[in-house]
């Protein structure tokens, strides 16, 4: 039997918003330690990795490891039936054909239940080695979303150049060029408003704006985003999810032919 209760049900709604445009379907792997999801987008250029630790749930029980293949458009329909202040419980039997989402109002006088059919997904998992990145940037997630949105008006790809002086995001297209430079914050009142660069060596890489804009849909999950870059390996865009886990997006850099 599997059961996971999340008093802050809105978190699961935000998680789904953060992945549903990138992935059409995904497997939720449930074990005693928590829930994990790893899936590539249709073009296999980006990868989503979600971890929700069992201790972050208000109640968590998983007697046997199980994999629940879900159509994320269907899951989105169900999550739209859940109020932002409602408590979510996910339930499934061992070797399940369906998963049940139960939504409870805070005072307990309304309970909705939705049962969704599961799918058999033949998804391959990729092993991602621990990597020391040349540059790790922490910055306000809202600022990152805005830069992605603004620059994607000009071109399909964005250059991210990180040096000890700061980060430069730039793009060019038919109508002209645009760039945004961010300096490292010298003194911070609030850590979540700071731009912090940990740099081993300067890096310049090019990425597709379309995917970066998709990753920015996780902005409501965290005030801070971290970007990890190294030459010739995928960019990692990470949003921490309160005390429960994280969502990481991996994006292959563009390589000149």
């Amino acid at each position: 039997m599997f059961e996971a209760r999340l008093v802050q049900g809105a978190l699961l709604k935000k998680i789904l918003e953060a992945i549903k445009d990138l992935l059409t379907e995904a497997s939720w792997d449930c074990a005693q330690g928590g829930i994990q999801l790893q899936a590539m987008d249709n073009s296999h250029v980006s990868l989503v990795s979600l971890t929700l630790r069992s201790d972050g749930f208000d109640k968590y029980r998983c007697d046997r490891n199980l994999t629940m293949g879900m159509n994320l458009a269907s899951m989105t329909k169900i999550m739209k039936c859940c109020g932002n202040d409602e408590i979510i419980t996910m339930k499934a039997q061992d070797e399940p054909d369906t998963v049940t989402f139960m939504f409870e109002s805070k005072n307990g006088d309304k309970i909705s239940e939705y049962e969704m059919k599961l799918m058999n997904l033949d998804q391959d998992h990729l092993g991602i080695p621990e990597t020391d990145y040349a540059c790790v940037i922490k910055m306000p997630s809202g600022e990152f979303a805005r830069i992605c949105r603004d620059l994607s008006q000009f071109g399909e790809s964005m250059v991210i150049a990180c040096s000890k002086n700061g980060i430069k995001f730039s793009t060019s297209g038919d109508i002209g060029t645009g760039n945004v430079k961010l300096a490292q914050t010298s003194s911070v009142d609030k850590e979540e408003e700071a731009v912090i660069i940990e740099m081993q060596e300067p890096v310049t890489l090019t990425f597709a704006c379309k995917y970066l804009n998709n990753f920015a849909k996780a902005t409501p999950l965290s005030p801070v985003v971290s970007l990890s870059l190294s030459p010739d390996v995928p960019l990692v865009v990470e949003y921490k999810i309160e005390d429960i886990g994280y969502v990481r997006y991996y994006l292959a850099p563009k390589i000149e032919d």
Partner: peptide, 14 residues
């Protein structure tokens, strides 16, 4: 002109 590498060229499946 760009060529975009797929994830599998970076990370091995298991």
């Amino acid at each position: 002109i760009f060529r975009q590498e797929g994830m599998r060229s970076f990370y091995r499946g298991y």
